[in-house]
Deep mutational scan, measured.
Amino acid sequence: NKFNKEMRNAYWEILLLPNLNEQQKRAFIRSLYDDPSQSANLLAEAKKLNDAQA
Rank of each mutant, 00 (worst) to 15 (best):
Asn1His: 04
Asn1Met: 01
Asn1Val: 03
Asn1Gly: 12
Asn1Pro: 15
Asn1Ile: 03
Asn1Lys: 06
Lys2Arg: 10
Lys2Trp: 14
Lys2Met: 11
Lys2Asp: 15
Lys2Ile: 15
Lys2Ser: 15
Phe3Val: 15
Phe3Gln: 15
Phe3Pro: 15
Phe3Glu: 15
Phe3Asp: 15
Asn4Met: 03
Asn4Ile: 07
Asn4Ser: 04
Asn4Tyr: 14
Asn4Gly: 12
Asn4Lys: 02
Asn4Phe: 11
Lys5Ile: 01
Lys5Gln: 05
Lys5Phe: 01
Lys5His: 02
Lys5Leu: 00
Lys5Ala: 02
Lys5Tyr: 01
Lys5Val: 01
Lys5Arg: 02
Glu6Thr: 03
Glu6Leu: 03
Glu6Trp: 00
Glu6Ile: 03
Met7Glu: 07
Met7Ile: 07
Met7Phe: 15
Met7Lys: 00
Met7Leu: 10
Met7Ser: 04
Met7His: 01
Arg8Leu: 14
Arg8Gly: 02
Arg8Ser: 08
Arg8Asn: 04
Arg8Gln: 15
Arg8Trp: 15
Asn9Pro: 01
Asn9Thr: 07
Asn9Lys: 15
Asn9Arg: 15
Asn9Met: 14
Asn9His: 14
Asn9Gln: 15
Asn9Trp: 11
Asn9Ala: 15
Ala10Pro: 00
Ala10Gln: 01
Ala10Thr: 06
Ala10Val: 08
Ala10Tyr: 01
Ala10Gly: 02
Ala10Glu: 01
Ala10Phe: 02
Tyr11Lys: 06
Tyr11His: 04
Tyr11Val: 11
Tyr11Ile: 13
Tyr11Gly: 03
Tyr11Met: 14
Tyr11Asp: 00
Tyr11Ala: 07
Trp12Glu: 04
Trp12Gln: 05
Trp12Tyr: 08
Trp12Asn: 10
Trp12Thr: 05
Glu13His: 14
Glu13Asp: 05
Glu13Asn: 14
Glu13Arg: 13
Glu13Met: 10
Glu13Gly: 15
Glu13Leu: 11
Glu13Lys: 15
Glu13Ile: 15
Glu13Ala: 13
Glu13Pro: 01
Glu13Tyr: 13
Ile14Val: 04
Ile14Leu: 06
Ile14Thr: 02
Ile14Ala: 01
Leu15Gln: 06
Leu15Ser: 09
Leu15Val: 10
Leu16Lys: 11
Leu16Pro: 04
Leu16Ser: 13
Leu16Tyr: 14
Leu16Arg: 14
Leu16Glu: 09
Leu17Pro: 00
Leu17Phe: 06
Leu17Ala: 13
Leu17Met: 09
Leu17Gly: 01
Pro18Val: 07
Pro18Ser: 05
Pro18Trp: 03
Pro18Lys: 07
Pro18Leu: 05
Pro18Ile: 05
Asn19Met: 13
Asn19Ile: 09
Asn19Pro: 00
Asn19Asp: 09
Asn19Glu: 12
Leu20Asp: 00
Leu20Phe: 02
Leu20Ser: 00
Leu20Tyr: 00
Leu20Lys: 00
Leu20Ile: 11
Leu20Pro: 00
Leu20Arg: 00
Leu20Thr: 01
Leu20Ala: 01
Asn21Glu: 12
Asn21Ala: 13
Asn21Tyr: 13
Asn21Thr: 10
Asn21Leu: 12
Asn21Asp: 10
Asn21Ile: 09
Glu22Val: 13
Glu22Gly: 06
Glu22Ala: 12
Glu22Ser: 11
Glu22Trp: 07
Glu22Ile: 10
Gln23His: 09
Gln23Ala: 15
Gln23Lys: 09
Gln23Met: 08
Gln23Thr: 10
Gln23Val: 10
Gln24Ala: 14
Gln24Trp: 07
Gln24Gly: 03
Gln24Ile: 10
Lys25His: 04
Lys25Asn: 01
Lys25Thr: 09
Lys25Ser: 03
Lys25Pro: 00
Lys25Ala: 04
Lys25Asp: 00
Lys25Gly: 01
Lys25Met: 03
Arg26Val: 08
Ala27Asn: 14
Ala27Lys: 11
Ala27Pro: 03
Ala27Gly: 11
Ala27Arg: 09
Ala27Leu: 11
Phe28Glu: 00
Phe28His: 11
Ile29Trp: 06
Ile29Phe: 10
Ile29Asn: 02
Ile29Leu: 06
Ile29Thr: 08
Ile29Glu: 02
Ile29Met: 03
Arg30His: 09
Ser31Thr: 07
Ser31Pro: 05
Ser31Gly: 12
Ser31Arg: 09
Ser31Leu: 13
Leu32Trp: 03
Leu32Val: 03
Leu32Asn: 01
Leu32Asp: 00
Leu32Pro: 00
Leu32Gln: 01
Tyr33Lys: 04
Tyr33Asp: 01
Tyr33Gln: 02
Tyr33His: 10
Asp34Pro: 04
Asp34Ser: 13
Asp34Glu: 09
Asp34Ala: 11
Asp34Gly: 10
Asp34Leu: 13
Asp34Asn: 07
Asp34His: 14
Asp34Thr: 05
Asp34Gln: 12
Asp34Trp: 09
Asp35Ala: 07
Asp35Met: 08
Asp35Phe: 06
Asp35Trp: 06
Asp35Pro: 01
Asp35Arg: 07
Asp35Glu: 05
Asp35Ile: 08
Asp35Gly: 09
Asp35Asn: 10
Asp35Gln: 13
Pro36His: 04
Pro36Gly: 09
Pro36Tyr: 03
Pro36Lys: 04
Pro36Glu: 02
Pro36Thr: 11
Pro36Trp: 03
Pro36Ser: 09
Ser37Tyr: 09
Ser37Ile: 05
Ser37Gly: 08
Ser37Thr: 13
Gln38Ala: 12
Gln38Arg: 11
Gln38Asp: 08
Gln38Glu: 13
Gln38Tyr: 09
Gln38Leu: 08
Gln38His: 07
Gln38Phe: 10
Gln38Ile: 09
Gln38Gly: 05
Ser39Ala: 12
Ser39Glu: 00
Ala40Asp: 07
Ala40Phe: 07
Ala40Pro: 11
Ala40Leu: 14
Asn41Ala: 09
Asn41Tyr: 10
Asn41Thr: 14
Asn41His: 11
Asn41Arg: 05
Leu42Met: 08
Leu42Phe: 09
Leu42Gly: 03
Leu42His: 14
Leu42Thr: 12
Leu43Pro: 02
Leu43Tyr: 03
Leu43Phe: 03
Leu43His: 03
Leu43Ala: 13
Ala44Ile: 10
Ala44His: 14
Ala44Tyr: 13
Ala44Lys: 10
Ala44Glu: 06
Ala44Arg: 04
Ala44Val: 14
Ala44Gly: 07
Glu45Trp: 08
Glu45Asn: 13
Glu45Gln: 12
Glu45Ile: 12
Glu45Met: 12
Glu45Val: 04
Ala46Leu: 01
Ala46Ser: 10
Ala46Glu: 00
Lys47Tyr: 05
Lys47Gln: 07
Lys47Pro: 00
Lys47Leu: 04
Lys47Phe: 07
Lys47Asn: 06
Lys48Gly: 07
Lys48Ala: 14
Lys48Trp: 14
Lys48Phe: 10
Lys48Val: 10
Leu49Trp: 12
Leu49Asn: 09
Leu49Asp: 06
Leu49Tyr: 12
Leu49Pro: 00
Leu49Ser: 07
Asn50Asp: 10
Asn50Thr: 02
Asn50Gly: 07
Asn50Pro: 01
Asn50Arg: 02
Asn50Ser: 04
Asn50Ala: 10
Asp51Pro: 02
Asp51Trp: 11
Asp51Phe: 10
Asp51Glu: 15
Asp51Asn: 10
Asp51Met: 11
Asp51Lys: 09
Asp51Ile: 08
Ala52Phe: 10
Ala52Arg: 08
Ala52Glu: 10
Ala52Asp: 14
Ala52Trp: 10
Gln53Ile: 12
Gln53Ala: 10
Gln53Lys: 06
Gln53Glu: 08
Gln53Thr: 12
Gln53Asn: 09
Gln53Pro: 07
Ala54Ile: 13
Ala54Gly: 11
